[in-house]
């Protein structure tokens, strides 16, 4: 028997992930959320390792460090610095633009319509370019020092 009422159609947290057929900025939002959550998880993991394992004595600390010193965790470390670069620089762009700067003024809506964030996409692309440069620099640094 149906409940005879309107059906709730909220996407919930899936609405953060579901980007539909939207353009670049919608996916930057998604990546900002993912990197933010990733950094939070890394922070918890890092604090756990550097507190709980450390206070248990030198032997446990040394074995933990030697366990973590492998290519998998080196790749993980690279992802952390790449995520940090993205989250920090994109966050800076968001702080500037979310306070109404670097967006321009309202314009009459004449077809084909454009919107402020896409008229100022150069800012976004400069930020992304800086993130890519940092990510490549970190990648070279990590590979020169070796993954393991």
């Amino acid at each position: 028997m149906a409940d005879k009422g309107p059906h709730q159609n909220y996407l919930g947290m899936w609405g953060w992930v579901w980007g539909g057929n939207y353009k670049l900025e919608r996916y930057l939002y998604l990546l900002h959320r993912i990197t933010g959550l990733g950094l939070l998880l890394f922070g918890l993991f890092h604090l756990t390792v550097t507190t709980i394992f450390r206070v248990q004595g030198e032997a446990i600390w040394s074995s933990t460090i030697s366990f973590l010193d492998n290519p998998l965790f080196r790749v993980g470390e690279f992802l952390v610095v790449a995520a940090f670069s993205y989250h920090a620089l994109n966050g800076l762009r968001l702080i500037i633009q979310e306070l109404g700067f670097a967006l321009g003024k309202p314009v009459p809506p004449i077809y084909p319509f454009t919107d402020a964030i896409r008229r100022k996409r150069a800012w976004t692309l400069v930020t992304l370019a800086a993130i890519m440069v940092l990510a490549v620099a970190f990648f070279i640094d990590f590979t020169v020092r070796g993954w393991g």
């Binding site: 939002y29 979310e98 919107d115 402020a116």
Partner: peptide, 27 residues
């Protein structure tokens, strides 16, 4: 508002609500 700006992209009348929200926030 987290400024995904999908609202402005989807608007069929070119209203750009995302810009309005950021300017409101500035005020």
């Amino acid at each position: 508002c987290h400024f995904a700006a999908a609202c402005s992209e989807a608007c069929p009348k070119g209203v750009d609500p995302a810009l309005g929200i950021q300017l409101l926030r500035k005020g």
